[in-house]
Computed example of a mutant assay.
Amino acid sequence: MTAGIDTPDRRGRTGLDRHGRDLTGNPRVVIRDVEVLSCDWYVLRRTTFDYRHGDGHWSREQRETYDRGDGATILLYDTDRGTVLLTRQFRLPAYVNGHPDGMLVETAAGLLDGDTPEEAIRREAAEETGYAVSAAEHVLTAYMSPGSVTERLHFFAAPYRDANPTATAKGIAAEGEDITVLELSFHEALAMIHTGEIADAKTIMLLQWAALNGPFGPGRPRPPRSHRRQ
């Protein structure tokens, strides 16, 4: 008996090896087997499939996929003062792969955990920054690492106003979160992409969207160039 397959794992899940077996949307792909390699918290699977190439021949392939569920992220902005609200927290994967201290500057984000993207991002914004979001604009949805990670990330943006964050800021201590809230001028945040101080993909995407098509795009009032608060 295997946890996550025949018996519940520590999150109460069974049948994790059946995910993806019944896919029929692509006639060039035939799923042959799905194995669960790990389900300690998220799920690592190895899928064996037959693939028909462009020249017509078939090959037997294997890929590992990491399933952590879908997520959402949000850029909070104040066009009157020309600021954005970001977070800083420790990210072990970045630390072990060349980031000097693993402390990444990011937009607020989190997994859906059964909620709709809109519900999830309002929850995460409150938990990570302390600001309540009443209405959020959906910007785009994207696969962030489609070669190995199944996650789709839903991108949002919403205005905030200069006010003291609620007591729920800085994340949830019980989940090991230790989050610093940063208020930066929009121009400073953009410059931090070029210096490498912002190296998180979702944050870069939202900042560039804001500069091209969003609240700080062409034709919008030019925000102040210096503002930092944490």
Results as ranks from 00 to 15, higher is better:
70 D>G: 04
56 G>D: 15
55 D>S: 08
33 D>Y: 13
107 T>C: 11
131 Y>C: 03
58 W>I: 12
90 F>I: 13
228 R>T: 15
44 L>A: 12
134 S>E: 09
118 E>N: 14
36 V>D: 06
185 S>N: 07
142 A>S: 02
144 M>F: 02
205 M>C: 03
64 E>I: 14
176 G>N: 13
109 A>I: 05
79 T>V: 12
99 H>Q: 09
124 E>Y: 06
106 E>C: 07
111 L>V: 10
78 D>M: 13
114 G>L: 01
165 P>A: 13
197 E>R: 10
55 D>R: 11
152 R>W: 05
124 E>P: 00
220 R>G: 03
154 H>Y: 09
24 T>G: 06
112 L>W: 05
43 V>Q: 01
182 L>T: 06
201 A>H: 10
100 P>I: 14
194 H>F: 10
42 Y>F: 14
118 E>D: 15
166 T>A: 02
218 P>D: 04
229 R>F: 03
182 L>K: 03
69 G>N: 13
192 M>Y: 15
143 Y>L: 02
14 T>A: 03
218 P>R: 07
7 T>C: 08
58 W>V: 07
76 L>C: 03
68 R>C: 14
211 A>F: 01
110 G>F: 00
17 D>L: 06
154 H>N: 13
153 L>N: 07
160 Y>V: 13
210 A>H: 09
60 R>P: 00
184 L>C: 02
185 S>C: 11
214 G>N: 10
10 R>A: 13
210 A>G: 07
122 R>S: 08
28 R>A: 10
90 F>S: 00
65 T>D: 02
64 E>K: 11
12 G>K: 11
153 L>R: 11
46 R>T: 07
155 F>W: 12
5 I>C: 00
107 T>P: 00
82 G>N: 05
138 H>F: 14
1 M>T: 08
128 E>H: 03
176 G>I: 13
50 D>M: 10
228 R>W: 10
46 R>S: 11
53 H>T: 07
146 P>T: 05
184 L>G: 01
202 K>W: 09
59 S>F: 07
99 H>S: 02
124 E>V: 07
25 G>D: 12
178 D>H: 09
199 A>Y: 02
7 T>D: 08
221 P>Y: 03
28 R>F: 01
209 W>K: 09
183 E>K: 04
146 P>A: 12
208 Q>G: 11
178 D>W: 15
172 I>G: 01
18 R>P: 00
46 R>M: 03
230 Q>F: 09
85 L>A: 05
198 I>F: 01
48 T>H: 11
142 A>R: 05
80 D>V: 12
196 G>H: 10
68 R>F: 08
22 D>W: 05
223 P>G: 08
152 R>A: 07
103 M>V: 15
45 R>M: 06
230 Q>K: 09
81 R>E: 13
159 P>V: 15
136 A>Y: 06
180 T>Q: 04
168 T>N: 06
81 R>G: 04
135 A>H: 11
88 R>L: 00
175 E>G: 06
26 N>D: 15
162 D>R: 10
199 A>H: 11
54 G>R: 14
94 A>H: 05
152 R>Y: 10
184 L>T: 08
185 S>K: 04
2 T>S: 07
115 D>L: 13
138 H>W: 11
6 D>C: 06
179 I>H: 04
77 Y>S: 15
36 V>H: 01
229 R>I: 02
141 T>R: 06
215 P>S: 13
188 E>S: 09
2 T>K: 11
213 N>W: 12
153 L>D: 01
